[in-house]
Amino acid sequence: MSRGSTYGISRVDNETSRTHGWLVTIQRRGVIYRKHFSDGVFGGKQRSFAAAKEYRDEIIAAHPPLSMQEYSNIVKKNNRSGVVGVCRYCASETRDLPEEKQRWFWVASWPLPDGRRKRVKFSVKKYGEDGAFQMAMDARASALGKLVGAFDPGAVRRKAARRRTAPVVASGAH
């Protein structure tokens, strides 16, 4: 994170309550760290921002973000397979068909550094129930072993910077 980053810091300008300052909000492992830095108390917008950044950096140093592996192993409340990131899935186009015509898969998923998710599926018909389940677990374990860095909860919300392309100019004689 760069020193100029506003990660975890937002501006508060409320004319009704005459509140002006910066609000730091950082959540780590279920604990929310929040503190307001008033322009009036700190002597202006720039000084209150500097104090907010200093506080934010102290919180992050004391409570670093989850690693990608830690984040990827959080057990969700709706987990029914018993394995994080592995679920049984019926192909949506076959869901209304009779049981023998439905296509079932075991699916492994994991986060990518840019915030998207990668999914691979293994056919129950092709590999059998146990085989497809084991292949999904193996695929996920292999992928998680290659994940590095810290989890970035804002990665999905940020849009990739658009690349500008030069205009196409027709050449040649008319």
Results as ranks from 00 to 15, higher is better:
2 S>P: 03
2 S>I: 08
2 S>H: 10
3 R>I: 09
11 R>N: 07
15 E>K: 15
16 T>M: 08
18 R>Y: 07
22 W>L: 01
22 W>H: 01
24 V>F: 01
25 T>L: 11
25 T>S: 14
26 I>L: 13
26 I>N: 04
28 R>P: 02
35 K>G: 11
41 V>Q: 15
47 R>Y: 05
47 R>F: 04
51 A>C: 07
56 R>W: 01
56 R>K: 07
57 D>C: 08
59 I>G: 00
63 H>Q: 10
65 P>Q: 00
65 P>L: 00
68 M>D: 00
69 Q>W: 04
73 N>P: 06
76 K>R: 14
77 K>D: 08
82 G>T: 11
82 G>D: 09
84 V>D: 09
87 C>L: 06
87 C>A: 07
88 R>N: 09
90 C>T: 07
91 A>R: 05
92 S>Y: 07
93 E>W: 13
94 T>Y: 05
104 W>S: 01
112 L>W: 01
112 L>S: 05
114 D>I: 03
118 K>F: 05
125 K>H: 11
130 D>A: 15
137 M>W: 07
137 M>D: 09
138 D>T: 13
138 D>V: 08
139 A>H: 07
140 R>M: 09
144 L>M: 05
146 K>F: 03
150 A>D: 10
151 F>E: 02
157 R>P: 02
161 A>Q: 12
165 T>Y: 15
167 P>Q: 15
171 S>G: 08
171 S>H: 12
172 G>R: 06
174 H>N: 11
